[in-house]
Design a binder for these strands. Structure first.
Lengths: 414, 414
DNA sequence: TTCTTTATTTTGATACGCGGATTAAATCTG
DNA sequence: CAGATTTAATCCGCGTATCAAAATAAAGAA
């Protein structure tokens, strides 16, 4: 814990104000004063500083006239042009990149449907570098306009060090991807688990805006877990993001290990489904997505074995989720998976097994919802992660400090 | 998060100083300045206030002469008489109570070997009340000398509300034990999971003094889990302490549920061992402790089935611990169990299964150690929990605020 | 135009931490 | 034994923070 000095004090209150402005759209100073429990005087001082730094702007007058007499409120909002950041999402078969402004509005995006799976880290870094440069220039910007970049990827990530301990998309272990990209692009780069990004996105502009504790589970090629706990992203002891795929849900048996990744990921389900699909889909080289949808079709058509297979996967995931609920007691669990999570043959068993495995004292604490995220959503989460740093949350391990003074362009002062 | 004002600032720094004094015994102001990163001026001001409040005292001169010239340092330490607190540990077959001073030195203790198992909550509250009054008076104190009390008990506890959601020692659910005792004793009472207390005790005066992230697992009648994460006790969303017994480690099968409590607790092990022991111990009414030690004897003597039984329990616990390590990545895991944890036939399989189930990227992060706690240790943890509140940690949900101005008696000013 | 009402800013008071100068209390030196 | 030296702790003044109260600004209402 840092020592408390006036600077920290100001940083904390400044962050409160910024956060309130971000969350509650255009707000007046009086409202901010109520929202933050700060005195009007202090709010005035802080907003003056923020206006001075061009991080916020007063809303053009003539906007919403609040019925009533008195002096009209001046509404304040984030200055979209206060900074630009880049978000990158790495998946096995696609690189998605987006440039956003300070409000996390997407200014330009780029999707590269490339299999980066098992490529060298440096090759991937090359691809990302090129993609980012291209995306930035397509948005009519220079790299020097960019204040920061965040890369989300599946696997175990040590955010503080910028190191990816292990990921399905890297052959290597312990890849220092963050520093590598920082050097290539000349811009501060952070990396994080992809699911953390989407968890932050849900918290900032998704379904979980009001909720400070929730779990995010993504079922894709691999399994991801993001935890928001007490309003902060949860990380293990070294800032390590936990990997849901590493959770054990069965005793390792003859059929394979008991890791959840071996039971409920797309990859695992497809591997098991292979013999079942052989009759219907001779093309074993079809994309996983196609093969998965074939499996779902077969299940929907009533193929017992396909149904059982999906049910087994759902149950395994439910087992793990029940354990997580027992630990974190989150009021909400958000589950997503490009295809799997859309099938009742997967979701129903999942729900049932969560209910069955949850201790009675925790029954009904967690509301389990399914949700599909576009690539844009992930990437917006990545951008949000960088913005969060720019806002300057003074507590928690914010990771490497980004430049505080963001390059400015427009913004009209009072 | 609270809003930051000068008061919070001072509270934070004051806590830093108090914490440093607690941890590093008698220290001088210069040392405090280095330890806390505060300027000598500030340390001087804060210690002056603490001396004024009689929370700390200067060590009698003539103490350790630090070789060197200059003006000698004045060593400061906690004022033992600044407050008295009571710690209570509730177990199925025993109530342990201790009164400590402000340094967590035990002034008097009392052990009531009573089976409170399945008693009414109000009966138990009666017993605790009487015990506390007795223990306090035996220590030559009045109840009015007591600043606070903390009760530790197994099960799921919602500390903030003082409610025990569910516990093996209460027949009822949702027992508002804290408020009930507060009213009876006229003293602020908090309750917490017993394992949290022992985790705090390890952090304050045990093996984990230098470590800010570790797990504590207790294998007794029931299973307990305490988590220290980032230097703070980890709690679920509503301040709920997670219960290790509720973790699922197997699919529920014909042999029973897959809850860890049904597989690795003393109770579960004994239930399974019952048929094996029948030949050797006809007295089925013997204490669990005796029967357990008989089981261990049999295993040590080479009884295959007893060995297998212990191994199965150890493996199940290892399974759960591996999952917890995957989540929290703690450098240390402390395991205790009155008897089970002392047997290699239990511990070895546990270690093996942790190693087997842990993902390779996390192999060797956690050092697993066995540890036996005396009842005094638990109770000292309970006292420490109350002291922690008195010290006034300004962050985190410290629960109900205790009186800030503690009753004073001695303490010699400069 | 003048009052009323509400939002924001200005003013004055207070609390805090910090750096530099100062005092305190010992040892060392001659 | 007196003065120099050294190290610890405190005092003084500055800058900054919040906050309460008073003052000002900007509207509508009379």
């Amino acid at each position: 814990m840092k020592t408390a000095d006036p600077e920290l004090m100001r940083a904390i209150n400044r962050f409160h104000v910024m956060d309130a402005i971000r969350r509650f759209g255009p707000v007046s100073r009086v409202e901010l004063s109520q929202l933050t429990d700060l005195s009007p005087t202090t709010v005035s001082a802080i907003t003056a500083a923020l206006l001075d730094d061009k991080l916020i702007v007063p809303l053009q007058v003539g906007a919403l006239r609040d019925l009533g007499r008195g002096r009209p409120r001046v509404m304040l909002k984030l200055n979209p042009d206060a900074a630009r950041v880049v978000g990158v999402k790495l998946a096995a078969d696609q690189i998605t990149i987006a440039v956003t402004n300070f409000c996390a509005d997407v200014l330009g995006s780029l999707a590269l449907p490339i299999r980066i799976d098992r490529q060298t880290a440096s090759v991937i870094a090359d691809l990302v570098e090129d993609g980012v440069r291209r995306c930035v220039s397509d948005a009519g910007l220079e790299m020097s306009d960019i204040s920061g970049l965040c890369v989300g990827l599946p696997g175990v990530v040590e955010r503080a060090a910028g190191v990816c301990r292990q990921s399905p998309i890297f052959g290597e272990r312990d890849v220092a991807f963050g520093p590598s990209l920082t050097e290539r692009l000349g811009v501060p780069v952070t990396i994080d688990s992809d699911v953390n990004l989407v968890a932050l996105a849900e918290h900032w502009f998704g379904q979980a805006r009001e909720i400070n504790d929730f779990l995010v589970v993504s079922v894709e090629r691999s399994l991801g877990l993001g935890i928001l706990h007490n309003g902060e992203l949860f990380r293990g002891a070294n800032g390590l993001g936990p990997d849901l795929g590493d959770m054990m849900v069965r005793l390792p048996g003859p059929g394979g290990g008991g890791r959840l990744a071996d039971l409920a990921s797309e990859t695992a389900v497809l591997a098991e489904a292979e013999p079942l699909l052989r009759n219907y889909d001779d093309d074993a080289t079809a994309t996983p997505k196609r093969r998965l949808s074939l499996l779902l079709q077969r299940a929907a058509a009533g193929d017992e074995r396909c149904v059982a297979l999906l049910a087994a996967a759902g149950e395994a995931l439910g087992f793990a989720i029940a354990n997580l609920i027992a630990l974190f007691a989150p009021p909400k669990v958000i589950i997503s998976g490009r295809l799997l999570a859309t099938s009742e043959h997967f979701v129903e068993p999942l729900r049932r097994s969560v209910a069955a495995f949850l201790p009675p004292s925790l029954a009904d604490v967690a509301d389990i919802v399914m949700r599909e995220w576009s690539d844009g959503f992930w990437v917006r989460g990545a951008a949000a992660m960088t913005l969060r740093d720019l806002y300057g949350a003074p507590w928690g391990t914010t990771g490497p400090a980004l430049l505080r003074e963001a390059p400015q362009t427009g913004g009209e002062p009072l």
